[in-house]
Design a protein around this nucleic acid. Structure first.
Lengths: 190, 190
DNA sequence: GCCCCCATGTAAAATGTTACATGATTAG
DNA sequence: CTAATCATGTAACATTTTACATGGGGGC
């Protein structure tokens, strides 16, 4: 069986946040690392079952409806081994860029809509992540945990800023295209 | 049947590049838009069959082993309709950020390796895309086609620069962590 | 009483990659 | 002759999302 990342996200969150249920795991993932990772129940529950069978996690007695899991020593070993491997090159897939690339089949109007949408979403994202960073600094998390949380948040902010600024530039080029044609637009990119 | 993006990539490339075979399509996608999209043969060939059945593309007589497809008027209509819809919010999934987030279970050494790897890959990417941009400007592509090609390349460069600069900053924070502990590292992030 | 949140799980469908099978043509 | 590239396609597998089914508890 090939290694799927879901395995290690679950192990990592259980290591970082202590024992929790499948439902809790989903909430944790959505909240703390939601801006660069996601998992659905359809993956979480079957995977928890499998990890239990493999001995990497163990389930406490299901008291009420809840069934909290904790990471085992074997699970920690597996997590550490995964963490130490260089990540695979990431495959980017952007529907926005695809549409913009086919921009010559689009009216100027539509291209503009595409780009203002992207710029605004990036702006919202920046605000959101900056708030998250402030909250983190003010919160009770300390030491290395805080440091690494801030580092990944910063990466999100940096990426969103680059996106917003690029969209603004591209928007100017589209304006120039409308006013002065392709050559004017190309000149505006310099 | 839900709309899969593969459909429209194929339609778009046929509209942009003229009639071509499944093999050509793959090459075109890898080359021109490979930095933000990819398709495998396993998706391309079945999809070409389906699109033919739907009347969105048509196959010329298979002369030698080749079977070139062209987009039909119905295909152009479908493409335009898709282009005009705002793209779905993109789901980012970064294994690197995941590993870094769990950085407190990592040695400083490993965190550094992760980040130098990311920084160097981003650097390579910048060089590659800058070359691509230069080649585009020097090539025979003109007008809107050139403009939109450059716009999407620029977005790749902007994203890669943001990544490289962030990784360099994060690396300094990890150095500070080793020298002066978490508080020194946090201070270095200001 | 009803709606929302908590909580677990399964099933089906969609999407995507990798491996395999086959054969022609071309460059060294 | 041999390796690479061109070319088509299928099958198996892996991954991921969405929809469904079920039920408890708390607030209004």
């Amino acid at each position: 069986m090939r290694e799927k990342t879901t395995t290690f996200v679950l192990l990592g969150v259980l290591a970082a946040g202590g024992p929790m249920t499948g439902y809790d795991l989903r909430g944790w993932i959505n909240g703390a690392i939601g801006h660069f990772w996601s998992e659905s129940f359809g993956q979480i529950y079957p995977e928890l079952k499998r990890l239990t069978a493999e001995g990497l996690i163990s389930a406490a007695a299901a008291a009420d409806g809840r069934k909290p899991y904790r990471i085992t020593p074997a699970g920690r070993t597996a997590l550490t081994a995964w963490l130490e491997r260089q990540p695979q090159a990431e495959t980017v897939r952007s529907e926005l860029l695809l549409k913009l690339y086919f921009g010559r089949f689009l009216g100027t109007e539509t291209a503009r809509d595409l780009l203002t949408g992207a710029r605004d979403r990036a702006g919202d994202r920046i605000a959101e992540l900056e708030t998250a960073a402030t909250d983190l600094r003010r919160g009770e998390t300390r030491g290395e945990e805080l440091l690494f949380s801030l580092l990944v948040t910063d990466r999100g902010i940096a990426a969103a800023r680059a996106e917003r600024d690029w969209a603004a530039r591209a928007l100017k080029a589209v304006d120039a295209l409308e006013d002065g044609g392709p050559d004017a637009a190309l000149a505006s990119l310099r």
